[in-house]
Nucleic acid binder design. Structure first.
Lengths: 334, 334
DNA sequence: CTGTTAGCGCTTTCAA
DNA sequence: TTGAAAGCGCTAACAG
């Protein structure tokens, strides 16, 4: 392996000069720079980043905790994070947690082991130890941000959309189509994000003076959308359903068809997230669009700022959402 | 920060003993071990893995190059890789290349920088420099393996399925249903994997003495499936189409419906990969199942073996595929 | 079984 | 503008 020492010898300078030439070329005379660069090229020297990071006491890695990378909603956020990270010489260490707290902690521990400098969490758990009832960010935590989800009690810096308003928009859309019996297939009950969507659902119904409610909790999977839709169908006489993500909505569409219903005429369905598949369902899925790439970019920007030592200026960055009306939601028949 | 030195002082032993206690506890007397562990706990010491890796001259990281993490087909493979990696104290550095060669190379360079120990590539490019026409693996390359795809000329160790046979199975299935005009929406022309699938398509047709062929090249995206299906429809009188992945098949289904056709009666569609969404399309998608998790696990096992210094024993590990018949393929009408 | 010691390759004062 | 030198925190001979 060719090291900085070899290059120094070849160029007839000290290792310090080589290091400087590579890191701050402007601080080196043009002549020296030329000599060094020539030696670098002819030797095929490549900086040992591991050694550099060790010396600098940072890894230039950020852990990204994802509940499920197979969920296309997350992948676009990750792409946004990754793009910004790469632009700033950071790398992403992806942790697919599958909701497992131990795995989350294991990845977060990489920071204590100096394998990573910060943690971005797309799930709803804080992967560090803290006392129940805590209401503030622990100053001992490493740079830490969340995206999409947020914590109920602790003001962790977060990038997300206004989930209450988004859910309200979705339900209002169905109300404006004449629906009065609107079910809601939500995600897990203990998620703040889902709580917000539930609030939005209820706000919209209340404002329209609609009493009928039906809420079911799925787990964001296709299968759970299918199952919860069947539960809803057993309750009878609902003409529309709002789902907390597109995968559950796609599952719900399937359940309707299997039950002999023909969406959207017999059942209007609205999803959430606007994943790529939403345009390719039958009928095409009405959904709430989230700016996934931008969420990723912004949360990484936030992380970079924290890594630079700044306190996060906004506790919560709220990006705009948008209702995308397609074919799966139509006016109530009759 | 508390270092190994602090622990040594607290426990009244040398730093070597602390290091040993942590790495090879069986080589240390029980008494010493107890002392050290107590000091570790009370001090909250955590190994600085960055320093350890630097000293050991390896990073315990493996770069995984993925053409597109938003494609659910890849995510399951990644999950398989990750599971095995974690079990062996390896971490995954995920590189979403979006087909960009420069990005691929940038990630592969992490190995020269000692930021990673090996590279697994899910795309079809070799991310190292090599002369055109090369027919062997360059011994200077770091541990390197591919999955799903393989290289036409260079026998890079690979884990994949038998794509010729799988495509043949898919087309034979359609033939057995009475179809004689079967189109093929393939992936990019320059992919060895797609070449194989094309061979399989042709073999099946030839064996059945079917002359009619129609091949279109998409890029594995939903949109390209939609577009290429429209191209096929312009060619008229086809009653079935085989698509080289499920996303294009889903796009094709949509194109059929938009053209006023009713799949599967008017058009049988068979996909490839059997992603989770395949069970939730309308009609449910017949597809070729690939053992995605196992592909990931096996390629990581292969990588671990190479990292341990072994030459790969199999140049190509072929895993079984399976035709999963659902609703999108039915007997030819009339 | 334990301690001493010599670095790994690099960055970064500090002094020249 | 450049060089000498001091480590970063850890592991791994080697010696005891």
């Amino acid at each position: 392996m060719v090291t900085i020492k070899d290059v120094a010898k070849m160029a007839g300078v000290s290792i310090a000069t080589v290091s400087r030439t590579l890191a701050e070329p402007e601080k080196v005379s043009e002549k020296t720079r030329a000599k060094v660069m020539k030696a670098v090229e002819s030797s095929g020297y490549v900086t040992n980043t591991l050694a550099r990071n060790f010396r600098r006491r940072r890894s230039n890695m950020v852990v990204v905790l994802v509940p499920d990378i197979a969920n296309p909603f997350f992948s676009n956020i990750i792409q946004g994070i990754e793009r910004v990270a790469r632009r700033h010489q950071y790398r992403i260490l992806l942790g697919d947690t599958q909701g497992d707290v131990a795995t989350e902690k294991a990845y977060a521990d990489l920071v204590s082991q100096r394998q990573a400098d910060g943690v971005i969490c797309l799930g709803r758990n804080i992967p560090f130890a803290y006392k129940k009832g805590r209401k503030t960010v622990d100053p001992n935590w490493p740079p830490f941000a969340m995206a999409c989800e947020y914590h109920g009690d602790i003001p962790v810096p977060t990038v997300c959309i206004d989930n209450v308003a988004a859910a309200r928009d979705a339900v209002n859309h169905l109300l404006s189509l004449g629906h009065r019996h609107i079910g809601f297939i939500n995600g897990p009950e203990d998620s703040p994000l889902c709580e917000d969507r539930l609030i939005g659902y209820r706000q919209a119904l209340k404002a329209a003076k609609v009493k009928t409610q039906a809420v079911f909790n799925g787990d964001f999977s296709l299968q759970s959308g299918y199952d919860r839709m069947n539960d809803l169908l057993k309750r009878g006489d609902f003409t529309a359903v709002f789902c907390a993500n597109d995968e559950m909505a796609i599952g719900a569409l399937q359940a309707c068809r299997d039950a002999g219903l023909k969406p959207p005429e017999d059942m209007s369905v609205v999803g959430f997230d606007d994943i790529a598949f939403a345009e390719y369902t039958h009928p095409r899925l009405t959904s709430i669009h989230q700016p996934r790439n931008r969420i990723g970019e912004q949360v990484m920007n936030l992380m970079l700022s924290m890594l630079a030592g700044n306190a996060p200026d906004t506790p919560r960055l709220v990006l705009p959402h948008e209702l995308v009306v397609r074919e799966s939601s139509v006016a109530k028949v009759g």
